[in-house]
Computed example of a mutant assay.
Amino acid sequence: MHIACATEPMEMPMFAFLTGNRAARMSAEEAVQKSRRGDVVVIDIRDGSELAATGKAKGALHVPMAALAMRCDPQSPDCLPELRSGKPIAVYCASGARSGMACGTLRRMGHAAVHNIGGLAKWQRAGGEITR
């Protein structure tokens, strides 16, 4: 068992225990850079009406929460091929709440490196492009 000492920051968001968000965090800035290089799979978890209103992160896969089990589970025949690459996954929604829940679900499905990068506005503030 590892016990953190005073020189090791213990950064865990409030309520992380609900979402299984215990892995190293990826910032929106890092997700934008990795996305540009093709080093991360970005998933927009919002519903279709939200995408129609605001667009989505350039290159992001749209997987609404209702379709998560079918389209992201490696055991499903309908699993997206991009999710079989083993690349880290960065998930966002409008505020970060649903993407936090989605991260926990993705980890339980067996995806190892899954990160909640918050809301679409964070992506945009980090220099990420939006497509409509």
Rank of each mutant, 00 (worst) to 15 (best):
E11S: 13
M12F: 10
M12E: 11
M12W: 05
P13N: 05
P13R: 11
P13Q: 08
P13T: 04
P13S: 06
M14S: 13
F15C: 09
F15N: 13
A16C: 11
A16I: 00
A16V: 01
A16T: 04
A16L: 00
A16D: 10
F17Y: 12
F17N: 11
L18F: 11
N21H: 04
N21D: 15
R22V: 06
A24F: 01
R25G: 00
M26V: 06
S27W: 02
S27N: 03
S27P: 03
A28T: 02
E29I: 03
E29T: 13
E29F: 02
E29G: 10
E30P: 02
V32S: 11
V32Y: 07
Q33E: 15
Q33R: 15
S35R: 09
S35F: 00
S35N: 14
S35C: 10
R36E: 14
R37C: 03
R37N: 12
G38Q: 05
G38Y: 02
D39T: 06
V40T: 12
V41I: 15
V41R: 09
V42E: 06
I43N: 07
D44A: 08
I45H: 03
I45M: 13
R46W: 05
R46Y: 05
R46H: 05
D47V: 08
D47F: 05
G48T: 03
G48Q: 03
G48D: 12
G48L: 00
L51Y: 05
L51H: 07
L51D: 00
A52G: 12
A52C: 02
A53L: 01
A53Y: 00
T54H: 07
G55K: 03
K56H: 13
K56S: 14
K56N: 01
A57M: 12
K58N: 06
K58P: 00
G59W: 03
A60R: 06
A60D: 03
A60K: 06
L61Y: 04
L61W: 04
H62S: 14
V63L: 04
V63A: 02
V63I: 15
P64Y: 11
P64F: 11
M65T: 10
M65H: 01
A66S: 12
A67K: 14
A67Y: 11
A67T: 09
A67L: 14
L68F: 00
L68V: 13
L68I: 14
